[in-house]
Amino acid sequence: MVEALPQLSARLRQEADVSRFMGGVLVARDGEVVFRQVYGLADADTGKPLTLSSRFRLASLSKQFTAAAILRLQDEGRLSVDDPVCRWIQPCPVAWTPVRIHHLISHTSGIPDLMQRPDWGERRTTPATMAELTADSAAFGLTFEPGSELRYNNAGFNLAADIIERASGMPFGDYLKTAFFELLGMADTGLGDSPDLVAGHANFASGLTPQRQANVSIIPGAGAMYSTLDDMLVWSRALHGGHVLPTDSYAAMIADHAPPDQSAERGRVRRIWGYGVMANRLGRRVIPGFDDFQVYHTGSWSGFRNLMSWQPGGQVTVVVLTNNYHQQDQVFLITQQAMAEALGRPFPIGLSAN
């Protein structure tokens, strides 16, 4: 437990005391942990509290690991992001001929996402293998020419995970373990389920309710990982510190792969869409605002809501992992309060209207 950010500490304690926040927060600056604390329950049914070593589902924070694995395999000469998807996926729909691996991990493939499909309700609750997910996707054509538009896409990252298996000759989770987790000492990070994961929750009229049917088998490359505050700090330091990818591959990961004419979203400044990460000046969305550039990603799935952000100028990592799906605004504001205080900016008190 570290609480060297007094404004953040006071705010989180106040929110936790009235049950408006449950989860864990870690902040590191210049290699030093300046905040590390958890609040609330690991499981509302049992009353078990969260601990500093609690394992949370990462949801879409997982996408950066999938993207990094593709880039690692490229560095090893086993594939290229410019490879046609049909080189790796067989049989391959004719419609997919122009789709490249690059499109899969930049949300620009045109392949319909899982949630856009007519059978989403059934697939959401039905366990699936990687082969079944790939076959599901192959049943669809494209909704736009690859590279011409950008639409957030979990299916593309699932296909990328399948390609990782084919290129590496290993199950996806085993490749991640061998290439990243074992080398970095991330012993509490993995793919799929683990018996000691905390329960996800949602706020219903009847109260705080555990959400136990995660079915992450349908999002292997898009959101199926779990981890801890400490392991995610290890990952952030390694990824942004040059210990996961060489300079050119890391530059490709955080570059903007959105179409040049991609419009602003909801009136906000358009974000940069990298491979499995995004970037923007998130502090402009809080009051008082601040302008520091941040590389980040969010995550939400089956009772979990997360955000991790990296600020390169101040060498600040903020990790917020929560096991309550209905904390979207809280998670965003807490992340920016932590970032602002760590950077010495005025402490935000709320979200802006834009």
Rank of each mutant, 00 (worst) to 15 (best):
A131Y: 07
T178C: 08
L183M: 12
W120S: 04
G147M: 07
L150G: 07
E165A: 04
E165P: 05
G173T: 01
E149H: 09
Y152M: 09
S106P: 03
W120E: 06
T178P: 00
Q116W: 07
S194L: 11
A128C: 05
S148A: 15
A160R: 03
D136I: 12
P146T: 00
T129D: 11
P195Y: 14
I105P: 04
G156R: 01
A138E: 13
S168E: 02
D193K: 02
L133N: 05
T108C: 09
E122W: 06
P127W: 05
M115K: 15
A167K: 08
I105M: 01
L114P: 01
G192R: 04
E132N: 00
Y175S: 08
A135C: 08
P118E: 07
N154H: 12
G110Y: 05
P118H: 00
L104E: 08
L142V: 11
Q116G: 08
E132L: 03
I163F: 01
D193I: 00
Y152Q: 06
H103C: 09
G192H: 01
S137R: 10
T134D: 07
Q116L: 09
L104R: 03
P112G: 10
L184A: 07
H102I: 12
L114M: 09
K177T: 14
P171D: 03
D136Q: 13
T108K: 02
F140L: 11
E132F: 06
A131N: 10
T126W: 13
D113V: 08
R151K: 15
L159Q: 02
I105R: 02
G190D: 06
L104W: 08
T143Q: 15
M186N: 05
Y175A: 01
V99F: 04
A138F: 11
W120L: 06
R123K: 10
N154C: 12
L159A: 01
M130F: 03
F181W: 15
G185M: 11
D162T: 11
P127C: 11
I163P: 01
K177M: 02
I163T: 01
R123F: 12
M170G: 02
M186T: 03
G156I: 01
L114W: 11
F172H: 02
L159Y: 04
E149V: 09
Q116N: 12
R123L: 15
I111Y: 00
E149G: 04
L104I: 15
D119R: 14
G192Q: 08
D188G: 11
T178K: 11
T126Q: 13
A131E: 15
P98N: 07
M186A: 08
P98Y: 04
L183W: 07
D188K: 13
D188E: 15
R123Q: 11
A139K: 13
A138Y: 10
E149C: 01
A135P: 02
P112I: 02
P171I: 05
R166M: 04
A128M: 14
N153C: 15
D113K: 10
A155P: 05
L184D: 10
M170E: 11
R151S: 10
L191S: 09
L150C: 13
S194G: 04
L133I: 12
E132R: 03
G169V: 02
P118K: 02
D193E: 15
P127M: 11
A138G: 10
F172Y: 13
S148Y: 10
T189E: 04
N153W: 06
G110F: 05
E149W: 04
F157D: 06
